[in-house]
Amino acid sequence: MKYFTIEELCQSTTADRKGIDNRCSNEIAANLTALVDNVLDPLRIWYGKPITVNSGYRCPALNKAVGGAATSQHMNGQAADIDTGDRQQNKLLFEYIRKNLSFDQLIDESNFAWVHISYRADGKNRNQVLKL
């Protein structure tokens, strides 16, 4: 973990505002570490500029508060929503991940408003590409 931290991946303004404890267990931290080591850090090295994590780990209460899917990989520490602040740059990240990195799901959210990326530490990654 070179460019991202567990704390960053667990930080949530919604959790802070609603008083939700979004700290993660060791098992979740291991999943987040795998996501960073296999996707986020390699992506950041290639991109050469900061990438913001809008949403990483979400405990069940936080996931419900933000309207996340009941089966969201965010709750397992396997997913992050990332953003550069620019849709074209987000599309660039999306295409790089699609062509060069292993992942479980890669989702273009709202025409590249942000990119959802997930990774399974057990190696059962589907390389599923979606547009929402």
Rank of each mutant, 00 (worst) to 15 (best):
K18C: 11
K18M: 14
I28L: 03
N31H: 03
D16V: 11
G19E: 02
L40D: 01
L40H: 08
V39Y: 04
T33R: 14
I28V: 14
D41P: 13
T14H: 07
R17D: 10
I45Y: 12
A15N: 10
N26H: 06
A29D: 13
R44G: 09
T13D: 13
S25E: 06
W46E: 13
V36K: 05
R23F: 00
A34W: 03
W46P: 11
L40M: 02
K18H: 10
D37Q: 08
A29P: 13
L35F: 07
A29F: 11
Q11Y: 14
P42W: 00
I28Q: 01
S12E: 04
R17N: 07
E27N: 09
D41T: 15
A29C: 12
R17F: 08
N38E: 09
Q11V: 11
A34E: 00
T13C: 06
I45H: 14
R23G: 04
Q11K: 15
I20R: 09
Q11S: 15
D37F: 06
R23P: 03
G19W: 00
C24D: 03
A15F: 02
R23T: 07
A15M: 04
P42N: 01
R17W: 04
N38H: 12
T14S: 11
R23D: 00
A30S: 08
I45P: 08
S25T: 15
D41C: 08
N26V: 01
D21L: 09
L32S: 14
C24N: 07
N38S: 10
R44W: 05
R44F: 01
K18Q: 14
Q11C: 13
N38I: 05
I20D: 04
R17Q: 10
T13G: 12
W46L: 10
N22G: 09
L43W: 00
N31K: 03
I45D: 15
A34D: 01
L43D: 01
T33H: 11
I28E: 04
K18R: 14
A34L: 01
D41W: 06
I28C: 03
I28P: 05
L40V: 08
R23L: 01
N26W: 02
Q11P: 11
N31P: 07
D41R: 09
D37G: 06
A30H: 05
L43C: 01
S12K: 06
S25R: 05
N26T: 05
K18S: 12
D41L: 08
G19K: 03
G19D: 07
D16K: 13
V36C: 13
A15P: 12
T14Y: 04
K18G: 07
A29L: 11
E27I: 06
I20P: 07
C24R: 05
D37E: 12
R44M: 11
D41H: 10
Q11W: 12
N22Q: 07
N26F: 04
V36M: 14
A34R: 02
A30I: 02
T14M: 11
K18L: 15
